[in-house]
Design a protein around this nucleic acid. Structure first.
Lengths: 299, 299
DNA sequence: ACAAAGTGGTTCAAAAATTGACCACAGCCA
DNA sequence: TGGCTGTGGTCAATTTTTGAACCACTTTGT
């Protein structure tokens, strides 16, 4: 057996949904013995019982319940793939489908979108907020605004705008309280982290405050910002926010970095579609006008 | 063949990664003929060529490239499932893993979290922002704050806080501009929508402005709010925002709804874990104190 | 120039999975 | 009470999938 989970998962889903081997078998056009074998195999590979077998059917165990949403997600994923690969999604497309990350959306781009709608009221917008770089490759979106160091992709036309300046920030209140007691390399300060909790991950050692600890973590940029403004700790973030949140102060001694840039990406199929062109040009111009604020004094 | 995509996907991934049938076969401990057969089957079910076959290997086609990130997502999903079902994740868990939706996080809960850290500096927090209700069931988080109408779940202890009041809002500027020209049932106004673009979906007909059109859509609540404040159209949202964003005005003639409530959920395994208890109690108390603002004048 | 090692394609005996018919048992209903 | 229908469990016959050895060809390194 090459792929234990993948192969058995649909059997699991069908049984979870129907509550019996035979009903699941009917749904999958197969025999109930086969379904049973797959379920047993899945339970064996996980080493956990997924169902309680009763005379009246199979009932999800606690582990089984944890697996259901995961399997459903995968199913959604595959259904979407099917639709998109067969090109059923792209057909009419009166709207421009646009994707960007949360921070950009909320603070930087949304006023631009409002102005765009004023000037081009005939163009509808479907706006996706996501941190996943791949959206445009999976044909989910037409245009994507990303913050990254490098773009190399066959089907994607990438337009590099300019580097964005990042620096460590904290709230004025946080610094007044913690900076007097902090050691030379940031000892006693806190970074607000990204992934799981790990008080001293690798990336911290490469910052200007290698001895600051990570005590809180969230993968959401906006929440990082919200916590930052309210005095949770330090975050490396765009200098732009200095201008809109007066309570933020650049941490003394922190380095400014210009490593990554803003990129505007569009799927190459759409390069010549007018409504997409309009939107991309408008957005690029508007963002270029904001260059001084986003690139900081290094512009 | 019961599950065309699921079964073949790992073969696809291996070939996409290695670039050759034989190398993929080695990775999967099988024969290259088998891999080839599966790839062909996958291409047949999708009706699309996924690879260009050359003498020097298989190269991803444009459709193939669209499929890679999807397959990778599924893989991540399954790997995570494995870890969690086998209970490897839960072990030490010094941190409380907490999940909530974006709007709540940014505007309502983040100040509470800051105060909590002040009072309990020994408890680390891993904060997830997500709209997925299922997080707690898949054992990804310990505590979850949700806005919904009903909670029924075997492994979950649910604490109902109180109903939240929603009403249609728009920016003052938007209303001044569009309301004079609007028809009786909202004709000429715009809703900011949720899913894909569809100018008159079902849910609109059940609102107080059934003839308003949906011209823009985003599945991100915070972006909805941001667009709302800047005058993009109307959104049904919490009356709480009226108090923090002075530019928002309740749309005259719009109904207030109290259908769904705030719920605080925790996985029943953790009911008696002290650090989780502390956190849940603290959060519940702090949220109860905000009841008048969240439930509106109907409180 | 010429092996050696790599590529995908093809074939067919061997291995594995599926089928379908049979159990024994639970509930339900007349 | 007895029969009908549903449940999971089992197992030999059958079908499908696999593995391994070929082929023809290209690329790489000597």
């Amino acid at each position: 057996m090459v792929a234990p989970d993948w192969e058995q998962m649909p059997y699991f889903l069908a049984v979870a949904r129907t509550g019996s081997l035979r009903a699941a078998a009917a749904e999958l056009n197969t025999a109930h013995g086969t379904v049973n074998r797959h379920i047993r195999a899945l339970e064996a590979t996980y080493g956990v019982q997924l169902f309680q077998r009763t005379r009246s059917g199979l009932e999800l165990s606690s582990a089984g319940r944890a697996l259901v949403p995961i399997a459903q997600d995968a199913e959604t994923l595959f259904l979407g793939a099917r639709r998109r690969l067969q090109g059923l999604d792209r057909q009419e497309a009166g709207a421009v489908r646009f994707s960007m990350t949360g921070v950009m959306a909320y603070e930087i781009v949304s006023p631009i979108l409002v102005r765009f709608f004023d000037e081009y009221p005939e163009i509808d917008l479907e706006i996706h907020v996501s941190d996943r770089f791949e959206d445009i490759n999976r044909l989910e979106t037409d245009v994507s605004l990303r913050y990254t160091d490098e773009v190399r992709d066959a089907d994607v036309v990438a337009r590099k705008l300019y580097p964005m300046a990042l620096a460590p920030y904290a709230s004025r209140a946080y610094l007044e309280r913690h900076l007097p007691n902090a050691g030379p390399e940031g000892e006693g300060l806190h970074w607000i982290g990204w992934d799981e909790i790990n008080r001293s991950p690798d990336w911290v050692r490469q910052t200007s405050f290698p001895k600051a600890q990570v005590r809180h973590a969230t993968t959401d940029h906006v929440l990082q910002l919200s916590l930052l403004r309210r005095g949770f700790g330090m975050v490396n973030t765009s200098v732009y926010f200095e201008s809109i949140y007066p309570e933020l102060v650049r941490v003394p001694g922190g380095d400014i970095t210009l490593e990554r840039s803003l990129w505007l990406l569009l799927h190459s199929d759409l390069r010549r579609t007018t409504r997409v062109r309009r939107f991309v040009d408008y957005l690029a111009d508007a963002l270029k006008a904001m260059r001084p604020q986003l690139q900081g004094e290094l512009a």
